[in-house]
Nucleic acid binder design. Sequence first.
DNA 1: CGGGGAAGTTACCCGCCAGTAACACCCCGA
DNA 2: TCGGGGTGTTACTGGCGGGTAACTTCCCCG
Lengths: 219, 219
Amino acid sequence: MTDQDSSRRDQIAEAWRSAPEGGAERHDIRRLSLIQAAGRAFGRKGFHRTTLDEIASELSVTKPMLYRYVRSKQEILYECHRVAVGMAEEALAEAERQGTSPLQKIGLFAEGYIARTTTALGTCVVLTEYYSMTPEDTDRIQRRRRKIDTRLRELLREAMERDEIAPCDPKLAVFFFMGAINGVNRWFSEGGAQDGHEIARVFARHIVASLSPRDATAG
Amino acid sequence: MTDQDSSRRDQIAEAWRSAPEGGAERHDIRRLSLIQAAGRAFGRKGFHRTTLDEIASELSVTKPMLYRYVRSKQEILYECHRVAVGMAEEALAEAERQGTSPLQKIGLFAEGYIARTTTALGTCVVLTEYYSMTPEDTDRIQRRRRKIDTRLRELLREAMERDEIAPCDPKLAVFFFMGAINGVNRWFSEGGAQDGHEIARVFARHIVASLSPRDATAG
DNA sequence: CGGGGAAGTTACCCGCCAGTAACACCCCGA
DNA sequence: TCGGGGTGTTACTGGCGGGTAACTTCCCCG
């Protein structure tokens, strides 16, 4: 385990521990800490191999304590996905505001999304285990993800119309770069050599380049 | 479930059912069918949510039957990973033979690897659940993957020296496109709109483009 | 026919872990 | 001093599923 990892764990545990005495606020903070600690664990070991005892132990409490903040393990997973998809939505909204062209918006989205998922405190929550959620929860998350996908495809079509990028299948192109982005969380927490913003910049550049028009080298 | 999916399932089940009566050969064929059926299920539902009863039922037998061909569920997962990493090694070897430049080799590798994982009968075996294997098995697989990674980084450095591609961090670049490639299996078996070779070609082109030199558009 | 072995089954065991019940502590206000 | 609500614990249950034991069938070779 790297320094970065243990420091993040400590930050989460500290947030839990030092939550103010008051009622509602304390509850919210602790619930969020729980989600974050769980998200980290799910990312490292997967949903099913992570026990509630482990999550509780990360926070220096015992399992029944967790049930004061969530109804079930499933709910924790759902909340993790909500946080993750929320980051994507945030990144997209920001990109739409700041970008001046479709292609630039895509680059900004990628950079913002990666930056959020790698650097924010509540990170490492980008999961791909949809199949571990209840069908209803999966639906709710998928609907939001689909919206983002749709908008990204739209941006690609606009970029094509303006000749910012080479002609391509928007669906496959989105799959392509979202795959690369979602892959980050699988190795990120282990490395620690690069910081999140660096990775975000590099990946965004690769993505933009991967779409740009170019004479057919690999015909 | 798409036509493609069910047809593949049928092919696997058929291979199992119609394995010749003889001793060793029958055993090998059935063992492979088992791995393939399991790999498909693991890809769709994840390792832990897939029960041996389900795998057995795919092959129209009952659970204890499986134990004539494998020692444990863990072993099945290990075999799936062996198949997958074997495909990567094959694709790389082929690319080395056929490619005439470092960049082209990378493109050929990507195309060959995706083609194998999406179209061969034993597909959908590209897993990312390392954490579900025993440490020893993980080591064995990781060592082979690492070798491929190392070679790909080398190719990137060579390509940079020849000015085939823009300067980049080889480690991050490999993570970038391997992430995109490994993402394929998450949506491929569901869609069915594109065939594997098509996806392979498109992705390879994106990858090559993502590395190619270009004036800094997204500074 | 008879026996042996492969193919396949039913019925079971047992460990793991999500979830719960019931109890212990502590602080604060009356 | 008593009580009550929030914080936290220990000790349990119950189901799911990997793995196994032991039985049945059926076929093939003498």
